[in-house]
């Protein structure tokens, strides 16, 4: 397994959807390739940092405003 093969398995590796044989090859490659080890670790950190932060959280005010607007329009539709 070379670095390109390793990258092509990265998504399945994260998802735990990788066959035991391939997993063995991935592990062997990782043990001998520092670059891929770094890519693996920092890609995992990338996902975690995005998951851990609400970068577009909606404020309660906005949420209420949108909610009422939606329900008002739906009720209008229902009556029409």
């Amino acid at each position: 397994m070379n670095c390109t093969d390793f990258l092509s398995q990265l998504t399945d590796y994260f998802d735990g959807q990788i066959s035991p044989e391939l997993l063995e090859e991935v592990r062997t490659h990782l043990a001998g390739c520092h670059h891929c080890e770094v890519v693996l670790n920092t890609t995992r950190q990338t996902i975690e940092v995005y998951r851990g932060q609400e970068i577009y959280e909606i404020s309660d005010d906005l949420r209420e405003r949108l909610h009422s607007a939606i329900m008002t329009k739906c009720l209008e539709k229902k009556r029409a």
Binding site: S8, L10, T43, T46, V49
Partner: peptide, 20 residues
């Protein structure tokens, strides 16, 4: 989906490396 996800993750990783 898988190929776009891989490219998205790798591009984000590359860009975030500048900061982290």
């Amino acid at each position: 989906v898988k190929s776009r996800l891989l490219r998205a993750r790798l591009q984000l990783r590359e860009r975030l490396s500048r900061y982290f």
